[in-house]
Design a protein around this nucleic acid. Sequence first.
DNA 1: TAGATTGTTAATCGATTAACAATC
DNA 2: TAGATTGTTAATCGATTAACAATC
Lengths: 228, 228
Amino acid sequence: MYRIRPRVPMAVVRRLPKYYRYLGDLMERGVGRISSKEFGRLLGFTASQIRQDLNYFGGFGQQGYGYNVEELREQIGKILGLDKKYNIIIVGAGNLGQAIANYTGFQESGFALKAMFDINPRLIGMSIRDVRIRDLDDIEGFMLEERIDIAVICTPKEAAQGVADRLVKAGIRAIWNFAPEDLEVPEDVVVENVHLSESLISLAYLANERETGGIGEEQRAERNNARA
Amino acid sequence: MYRIRPRVPMAVVRRLPKYYRYLGDLMERGVGRISSKEFGRLLGFTASQIRQDLNYFGGFGQQGYGYNVEELREQIGKILGLDKKYNIIIVGAGNLGQAIANYTGFQESGFALKAMFDINPRLIGMSIRDVRIRDLDDIEGFMLEERIDIAVICTPKEAAQGVADRLVKAGIRAIWNFAPEDLEVPEDVVVENVHLSESLISLAYLANERETGGIGEEQRAERNNARA
DNA sequence: TAGATTGTTAATCGATTAACAATC
DNA sequence: TAGATTGTTAATCGATTAACAATC
């Protein structure tokens, strides 16, 4: 009764979609069952970690047998909410917004694009895969008519927070943010950031680190001595 | 001499670009100096964490004063390798590849797009922002002529590993991968994955968790009892 | 100088890995 | 049954936070 709810660690949440994807691959390859050991080898995780992760949600395996691939996939799908349908809109119909709109993979996973919004008159009225680009000013009205679960922000940095504010006011609960800006939203609204330039910059760093051996003990010692 | 090189934790590497971005914002706003406490409030981190992170690379602050914004930004830029120029190519000139090619933010940070590659004859020969889309079969020749630091993979899932293999053979050291596939590469090649659908699925999960209160103790207990 | 704030060590917290009894 | 593999508890590892002497 008074036990504390075991919040699922973010690290686990991040791994679940990967489990789901690999289980899909296994199914396609006709693999019917898999042990945590094999699955771990495939994913590059320890068997322990996989069992531990799954254990947050319950026991899906069978001693001496392992996991039924199809069943585990379905269960993880349910946990992730992939048994539901999501209506999404894209705000900002520039290159990135259009690229996301054109990506059909999401639709297949249950994410249905309902509309796009922009302020550019040259874009408004166009359609991408039968989805109309509308005037941003119509967004509040649109959201009254349609239940929208997720809004994707693909605007320039400067416009992002303003758009977020309007979305929040219109009742959005989840934002997928591609603008290089950290959005301020009420705590009951979830924001998932895709900060592409931060990702690219990390990559550059890691590539340099690999090449130069990183800031090794020598350089570090030198730097520290310089201060001493 | 025999001390072990203090590898910079990945968590720190991920935060550095954010520091860099915020310091840029502060500069634009004309802020000359900042304490770890203020900076932490801005970023949503603890002051301790910021000081600890910076300490992996040396001491950039001054007791009683804090950090000089411009100087710290420059130092972090250097650590990240943003004082260097990077030549990049994009493989896969579909919607996503084109969107990335059109994004000018990278160019400004020192990432210069040198070429794009595709197998689609309708795309080959086109140009995006003066960068030609070439036949994928010319990629090896091209990489002999130009020093390419980073390759961006925007192909469909099925083509990604094959492209990665060719890039590796041609001497690439860093891959920015947008295909929903985990690439196998030699360990001296760095891969940064941007798995968009995993990101979207996590968002859906988090939104559901927020709404339903997640898998709470009640459901969990029930599930466990069901097995008992 | 006195106050502020760093750099850095120690304490805490959380996540990963190991171990193993339970059991299919 | 014997072997395999789970679910789960305990041990380890790493990352974050707290504390504080050093010092600008």
